[in-house]
């Protein structure tokens, strides 16, 4: 099994397409960091326009922690496309190149082959998020420094103490990894139905866009559906950055406003991963690869 995973990883990282995602993330993050380094004050002033009328804010708001949060908000919407580029190609790519039958002639079961491919695409997804974390968090911390994290929600602001931030990012990135593995599992599932990569990649993105729109629409008829859509739970990493307050409205350090929501979302995503993977194995084991 380990040999199979190694072979699949070799195949993934041998293709130039794999590195598009890493280059795209690096380019996007660099351009945002460059812009904020040059004109971060204007951006901060724009953000503070509303609150600045009644409150005086002293200190470095545009620090590494806030910049990482801004980038995660922007990028985690687009990273699914980069994940789908590889995961949706895992089976369909083999079919397209005509190597699927050859692959299945090896002395391994179809389940083993499929699991090896899924684990390999999961490793790619994890590496992509580690790359994102290095550039968005650590490089931003290095360029902009660290400090308290000042977050503006739509109806309130949250101030998180400097020494209470890092573990939240660790949690947020772990959660984001789970979310992206769900996307990877969806792309992987769709790839068993096609004989070229474009179809499953576009289908994965279309499903994500469609469900995301349903998740964000505030139409009562769709509200009952929302908890079951995996796209509703992809953004639950943000919950790590909301604090509980006590009776005197003092934020409690080390707390999370709604930890149950994170647990529920993680469970929903895990169920989706298992469902997509299970369905992939079940369908692929029945698939006629001779025609």
């Amino acid at each position: 099994m380990w040999t199979l995973i190694q072979i699949e990883l070799y195949k993934i990282f041998r293709r130039p397409r794999t590195y598009i995602a890493f280059v795209a993330i690096a380019a996007l993050i660099s351009i945002i960091q460059f812009g904020l380094k040059l004109d971060g004050k204007s951006y901060a002033d724009f953000l503070m326009k509303d609150i600045g009328g009644s409150m005086e804010i002293d200190g470095n708001i545009i620090n590494g922690y806030l910049i990482c949060y801004i980038m995660l908000q922007l990028l985690l919407v687009h990273v699914p496309l980069l994940v789908a580029l590889i995961s949706a190609d895992m089976i369909s790519g083999e079919a397209n190149m005509g190597t699927l039958r050859l692959l299945l002639s090896k002395p391994y079961s179809r389940t083993e082959l499929l699991l090896a491919k899924f684990f390999a695409s999961t490793v790619y997804t994890i590496m992509l998020l580690v790359w994102l974390a290095i550039l968005a968090l650590f490089v931003s911390m290095w360029i902009f420094g660290v400090g308290d994290m000042f977050l503006m929600k739509s109806s309130y602001v949250v101030l998180i103490s400097q020494n209470d931030v890092f573990w939240r990012y660790a949690g947020a990135f772990l959660f984001a990894t789970l979310a992206m593995i769900t996307v990877s599992a969806l792309g992987f599932f769709l790839s068993i139905f096609a004989e070229n990569s474009i179809g499953p990649i576009v289908a994965t993105m279309s499903i994500i866009v469609f469900f995301t729109i349903l998740s964000t629409l505030n139409i009562p008829i769709f509200n009952a559906l929302k908890p079951y859509l995996f796209t509703t739970h992809l953004i639950s990493w943000k919950e790590f950055f909301d604090l509980k307050v006590n009776d005197s409205n003092e934020a409690i350090m080390g707390s999370i406003q709604n930890p149950q929501r994170i647990i529920n979302s993680a469970l929903v995503l895990i169920v989706h991963i298992l469902a997509f993977l299970g369905a992939s194995i079940w369908i692929f084991n029945k698939k006629d690869v001779l025609s």
């Binding site: 409150m55 005086e56 804010i57 470095n60 308290d148 101030l159």
Partner: peptide, 16 residues
């Protein structure tokens, strides 16, 4: 008058 918070960011009522 200046109020500095450890860690950097302080929020105070304007002119208050």
């Amino acid at each position: 008058f200046r109020l500095k918070k450890e860690g950097g960011i302080s929020l105070l009522p304007k002119g208050g």
